[in-house]
Simulated assay, not measured.
Amino acid sequence: MELKTIIYKVADLIATITLSRPKRRNAWTGRMHTEYRWALEQADRDPAVRVIVVTGDPEGDAFCAGADLGALEGHSEKGRYDPGITEDIARPGYGVAPEFDATFAYHFGLAKPVIAAVNGAAAGVGLVLAAYADLRFAVPGAKFTAAHGRFNFPAEYGLSWLLPRIVGLTHANDILLSSRVFTSDEAMAMGFLNKLLPPEELMPFVMDYAKRMAEGVSPGSLRVTKNQIYTDLHRDAASAVNEAERLLSEMATHPDYKEGVKAWMEKRKAKWQG
């Protein structure tokens, strides 16, 4: 696929997806969504990738400023919402569980963790992207907003389900019912973010974190643990324990288990088979 709105790179076991429409503050379009899903599918299938990092083009002075205003005007003129995608769009993460087979929920079906490096404003769908990442790191003072209330929209793409699970009902109601702007400093206090870092330290920290995860955790463990986390949101505690015990017995027969023990005993990096 010819990429016009994102930059996709793979190095050191990490796939980096950069939202890149800097003149429009990396605003979201149907084209960007199409390219983003293509890139996720490539990363998820690539054995040379173990962790995915998503960030915004720094020239855009934002992570993602939300839906492009031109697209919003188009919806208004048509009198209906048009996502701007086609039926043949890539389907990363689909087929793992019915609960994940929907727009943005597909992140939960990916076999690899996604880290959001939020280097500026995250509004509307930008907030959605950050929320569906597994880990979120940001710069101080970045502005966040759900924004939907200003356009007579509902809470978008499952945020009404997801945000209460991340920040609790009280904070989720504040974000979603007011559509107010809040800062990354507030988001950190709410528990939405894992860490705040100065702009010059954000990407070096995230890439180092991703590399340590890619090298220090077996690919099988990353895949299964991520699936457990999001599947267990729908389970009771006993079912989660029973499934964990089943997986433990199964995964203990894999060569990566023996390699992990051996590497630990020999105080070296493990050579994962994946």
Score class of each variant (00 low, 15 high):
L197T: 08
P140R: 09
Y257H: 13
T231I: 11
R268K: 15
E266M: 14
I175T: 01
G56N: 06
P199L: 14
K112R: 09
E87T: 13
L69E: 15
I115G: 04
L248R: 13
A111V: 03
G93P: 04
A189I: 09
H171K: 14
R50W: 07
L197F: 07
S160T: 09
L177Y: 12
A210R: 00
I6E: 04
E73H: 09
V224I: 15
F104V: 06
E259W: 03
D82N: 09
K23Q: 10
R21Y: 02
E59R: 15
M251W: 09
Y209P: 02
G126R: 00
R31W: 08
A65D: 06
A11I: 10
A252M: 11
I166H: 01
L169I: 14
A155D: 06
M32L: 15
R136T: 11
F205R: 04
E73N: 11
H148M: 02
A146M: 02
A146I: 03
I89W: 08
T103H: 08
Y106I: 06
A15T: 01
E156K: 05
S178I: 06
W161T: 11
H254Q: 10
Y94W: 13
G93R: 01
V10N: 06
L163W: 03
S218P: 01
G149D: 01
P199V: 14
A65E: 07
